[in-house]
Write a protein that binds this DNA or RNA. Structure first.
Lengths: 247, 247
DNA sequence: CTCAATTTGTTCGTATGTATG
DNA sequence: ACATACATACGAACAAATTGA
C-alpha cells in the first residue's frame, strides 16, 4: 500500500495543480533559487508519487507563468527573474503604518454615510453611533495588493472630512489631538480569497490571503475605527518588531 | 455579458470544490451563522453561475464535513455546531507569547545539534556559530495547530539544555538574565500548506496557513533564536495590541 | 567522433472525474 | 437518470537535445 503522503487524492482539486502549487511556493519562499536546476521530471514524479505526465503538466503551467524554463536534454530551471517572491513588506506597528504610501496608490471603490458598524466578535470596546464606510484598493506600482473596508466613527470623520476622504485614514487619525491615547488592536487570519477579493486583487478564488482586522479605540474604550484589510498572500508580508519588557 | 465573476473556469480546479470553498469560508468567517438557512440550491446555482447539479455536489461535500444539514422539503441549514470558525487566539506580543500553553501539548519531532543556521533574507542581525535545531508540533486538545522549526544558538542552549528541551523555548529565554534587552522580529506570510506541513497538521496541501518567522536578537545584534512556525489558517488567529505613541 | 546515459518533448491509448442540459 | 463533452490521471513508446566517457 503506497503512501500518498502529502497530496490529497480527493476533494482538493487536480493533482497537477497541487504539485504546481508546491513548486510555486518553493520558488516564492526562496527554497528553490533563480537559475537553479529542478530535479528531473522522473524524480519529481517519484517524490510526489504521481505519474510523469502529471508532473509535466504542472511544469508546463509554471513555465507559462514565467517561473520555469525548460530545455530539452538539459533539464528544467528556475527562471532567473521569477516574478514572485519579491515581498512588499508592511511594518505593522503604529509608527510604520503611517508612512507606507510612497509609490503606492489608493483607489476608492465605495463610500456611504451613517452605516451601522459591522459585527466584531470581541470585547475590544463599545460602538458609538453611526460610522462612515469606505472601501478602497491599495496598489503598489501596477499591482493591487490590498482590499480594505473602513468603518470610521461618523463623529471623528466630521472633524476633518476632506482629509479622511483623500488621505490614509490611520495617518489622519494619528495627526489628531489625543492621538497618543489611542489603542490599536490587530487580528490576523489566514484564509483564501473570496469572490470579491479575488476579483479586486486579480487572484484566483482559492489563493491564500491575509485578513487583518484593525480596531482603534480611544481612551474611553469607544471604537472609532474598524479596518478590514485583505492582503495578497503572494505579494505581501507583515512585520512586527518589539522589545522584550517583562512585566 | 454574463458575469462569471468569481469562479475560474480554467486551471483552478473543479467548480464544485470552488463553490464548496466559498461556502466553507463564509461559515468560518461568520457570514453564515449556525442554524441559518442557506439559499435554495437553485438560487445558489444562479448566484455562482453554475449548474444545479454542481451546487448539489458542493453541498454534499460540506454535509459530509459536518458543516451543513439538509432537510428534504425544508432546505439546507448551517450546522448548529460547525467545527470551524472557532478560533484559537494567539496573542503575539512578547508578554503573551510566554503563557500560551495551558491546555496545549508540544510534541518533539526532531532534534539535532550544531546545525548551520537557515537562510534569513534580512539584515536583522548577525549569526553566531552553530545552532541547535528542534522541530515540534503544538496541539490544542486533539487538534495540531502549529508546526515549528526552531534554531537556538548553541551557546544559549548550553546554558540550560534541560529546560530548553522540555519547555517552550521563548518562555525559557525570557527567564534568562538580560532578557529585557532582547528584540523580537516577527514576519508573517500568508501561504498554503506544503507537503510536510499538510501531513503534520492533517491538512490538504493547498489549505491556507500562516507562516510566521520569529527572530530574537540580543543587544549586540547577535541572532540567538530563529523560529519558523506554520499555523493552521482554519483554526488560528493572531492578535497584536499596541498603544499609539507618536515619535 | 561515436556511443550510452540522461532528460525533456510528443503522441498514443485508456480509465475515471467533472460539468452541463 | 441519461447522454454528451471535456478535464484529469496514468502508463507506455518513441523522438530530440545535451552531456560526458
Amino acid at each position: 500500500m503506497l503512501e500518498t503522503a502529502t497530496l490529497e487524492r480527493r476533494n482538493r482539486g487536480p493533482l497537477y495543480l497541487q504539485v504546481a502549487g508546491i513548486i510555486r511556493r518553493e520558488i516564492a519562499n526562496g527554497i528553490l533559487k533563480p537559475s537553479q536546476r529542478l530535479p528531473s521530471i522522473a524524480e519529481l514524479a517519484q517524490k510526489y508519487q504521481v505519474a510523469v505526465v502529471t508532473v509535466r503538466q504542472s511544469i508546463s503551467l509554471l513555465e507559462e507563468e514565467g517561473l520555469l524554463l525548460r530545455q530539452q536534454g538539459k533539464g528544467t530551471f528556475i527562471s532567473s527573474e521569477p516574478k514572485i517572491g519579491k515581498w512588499l513588506v508592511l511594518k505593522s506597528d503604529w509608527n510604520s503604518l503611517l508612512h507606507h504610501l510612497e509609490g503606492k496608490q489608493t483607489k476608492s471603490l465605495a463610500v456611504s454615510d451613517n452605516v451601522p458598524p459591522p459585527a466584531i466578535d470581541v470585547r475590544i470596546g463599545h460602538f458609538e453611533g453611526a460610522y462612515r464606510f469606505m472601501k478602497r484598493i491599495h496598489s503598489s506600482g501596477d499591482i493591487p495588493y490590498a482590499l480594505i473596508e473602513i468603518y470610521l466613527s461618523q463623529r471623528i470623520y466630521d472633524l476633518a472630512p476632506d482629509e479622511f476622504d483623500t488621505s490614509m485614514v490611520i495617518s489622519v487619525l494619528s495627526e489628531m489631538k489625543d492621538a497618543n491615547t489611542l489603542d490599536l488592536h490587530q487580528s490576523i487570519f489566514f484564509t483564501t480569497a473570496d469572490h470579491e477579493t479575488a476579483n479586486a486583487l486579480n487572484l484566483a478564488s482559492n489563493a491564500p490571503i491575509g485578513d487583518v482586522v484593525r480596531v482603534i479605540t480611544d481612551k474611553s474604550g469607544a471604537i472609532i475605527y474598524i479596518g478590514k484589510t485583505k492582503y495578497r498572500g503572494d505579494f505581501v508580508k507583515l512585520e512586527f518588531t518589539s522589545r522584550l519588557h517583562r512585566k
